[in-house]
C-alpha cells in the first residue's frame, strides 16, 4: 500500500514535471509576459535607455516573439544575463528564450541541450589596429601584442589563427570590452581583437576613428542567434518562425509602414498572404492566431528595418549589411518559405 502510494506520487510528479516542461507557450500566455534573456549591455544589440526601456537588435527579436504570442511587443520581461549566467538561466527555466549575441556552436546546440532558432547576425572575429602601425593584413602581425577578452571563443580563435600562419603574438588578457577600449587607446597593445560588430562600435566611439582600421581578415565564423531549451519543439518553432517571418517580410517588401494595409485584405502575392494570415492558417499550426506574423512585423518592422535602426550604416555604429544582407542581395540572410 505504502509502496504503491509512493510510486503513484512519483508518477504524478514525473507527469507534472513533464507537463510543466512541455508547455512554454502556455506558461508564457499564463504569465502574460515573455521572459527574455538579453545582454547586460552591448552597443546596438541590447541596452536600456535613461527610462529603463530596452532597445537594440537582439531586443527586437524578443519584442517580435512577444507580439506574435501575446499580441503586445511591450509584454517582455528583460532579464539581463552575463556570459557566465546565460546558459544556466535558460536551462533552469528562468527565461523562456535567450537573445544575447550567442554564437551557434556544435557543443552549445548538442551538449548543452539548446536549440538555436536561426541566425539573426553573421559575425566573425576581426582585428583593429592603429593606422600608424603600418600593417594592412593580420598576417603581418608577427610579434604584436594583442588585447583579448579572456574566457571567450575569441581567445581560441586567435591562437588557432596565429598558429596556422606560423607567427607569434603576445596576449594582453582583458576582462571587458570597455577595459579593452581603454587599454588599446592607452597603447597597452598594438591590436585589439573581438567580434567585428564589437570592433565597429568600439571604433565609432574613438576621438579620431580614422586613425584606426579594421583589418580585412575575419578569422572565425560567429553565427549569432536566439535560442531556446531542448525538448519543447513547439516553442522552438514559434521563435524560429517569428525570426523567419521578419526575414521573409524584408524579402517580400513587407515593412512596418505597409504591414497593416497588407494584413487587412489578401493581396496578389500568395506568400505575403500566407505570411500575414489573409490566406490559409499557418498561425494555427503554431498554436497562435492568424495575425501572429503581422503583429511581429508591426512592432519594429522587418529584419532590414531592425538592422538599419539599431546597427545600420546610419547609426553611430555604422555596420554595413555585408554577410547580413538578404540572400537576394548577395548576403546569407535566408528564410525557409512560408508554405
Amino acid at each position: 500500500m505504502k509502496k504503491s502510494a509512493f510510486l503513484g506520487t512519483l508518477a504524478a510528479a514525473t507527469f507534472a514535471a513533464g507537463f510543466a516542461a512541455a508547455g512554454t507557450l502556455d506558461d508564457v500566455k499564463a504569465a502574460g509576459e515573455l521572459k527574455c534573456g538579453v545582454s547586460t549591455g552591448l552597443a546596438g544589440f541590447a541596452l536600456a535607455d535613461a527610462n529603463g526601456v530596452w532597445d537594440g537588435f537582439d531586443v527586437a527579436v524578443c519584442r517580435a516573439v512577444a507580439a506574435a504570442v501575446l499580441g503586445d511587443g511591450s509584454k517582455v520581461k528583460f532579464v539581463p544575463t552575463t556570459g557566465k549566467t546565460r546558459f544556466t538561466a535558460l536551462a533552469s527555466g528562468e527565461i523562456d528564450m535567450l537573445a544575447r549575441n550567442t554564437t551557434w556552436t556544435f557543443s552549445r546546440d548538442v551538449d548543452l541541450k539548446f536549440e538555436f532558432a536561426g541566425v539573426n547576425y553573421y559575425d566573425g572575429q576581426g582585428f583593429m589596429a592603429p593606422k600608424a602601425l603600418g600593417v594592412s593584413s593580420a598576417k603581418e602581425l608577427d610579434g604584436a601584442t594583442v588585447c583579448i577578452q579572456t574566457g571567450t571563443t575569441t581567445e581560441l580563435n586567435l591562437a588557432d589563427f596565429f598558429r596556422a600562419n606560423g607567427i607569434s603574438y603576445d596576449p594582453v588578457p582583458i576582462e571587458t570590452n570597455s577595459e579593452a577600449q581603454a587599454q588599446y587607446l592607452a597603447g597597452a597593445c598594438d591590436v585589439y581583437t573581438t567580434d567585428a560588430s564589437g570592433l565597429a562600435s568600439t571604433r565609432a566611439t574613438f576621438e579620431s576613428p580614422d586613425d584606426h582600421m579594421v583589418l580585412p581578415e575575419i578569422v572565425s565564423k560567429e553565427p549569432l542567434g536566439p535560442l531556446v531549451r531542448h525538448g519543447d519543439n513547439n516553442w522552438g518553432d514559434i521563435v524560429r518562425w517569428t525570426l523567419n517571418a521578419l526575414i521573409t517580410a524584408e524579402e517580400l517588401g513587407v515593412t512596418s509602414a505597409n504591414v497593416a494595409q497588407h494584413s487587412s485584405e489578401a493581396g496578389k502575392n500568395p506568400e505575403v498572404n500566407r505570411l500575414l494570415g489573409t490566406e490559409g492558417d499557418l498561425g494555427g499550426m503554431l498554436g497562435l492566431d492568424k495575425a501572429w506574423a503581422s503583429r511581429a512585423i508591426a512592432v519594429n518592422g522587418n529584419y532590414g528595418e531592425i538592422f538599419e535602426k539599431n546597427i545600420g550604416v546610419n547609426t553611430p555604429i555604422g555596420i554595413a549589411r555585408g554577410l547580413n544582407a538578404s540572400w537576394t542581395e548577395g548576403g546569407l540572410i535566408y528564410s525557409a518559405p512560408f508554405r
Binding site: 549591455g41 541590447a46 535607455d49 562600435s201 574613438f206
Partner: peptide, 13 residues
Amino acid sequence: TNIRADMAWNGIL
C-alpha cells in the same frame, strides 16, 4: 556597463 552600451556614452569609463 549598460550605460556604455548607449552609443551616446560608449567610451566613457
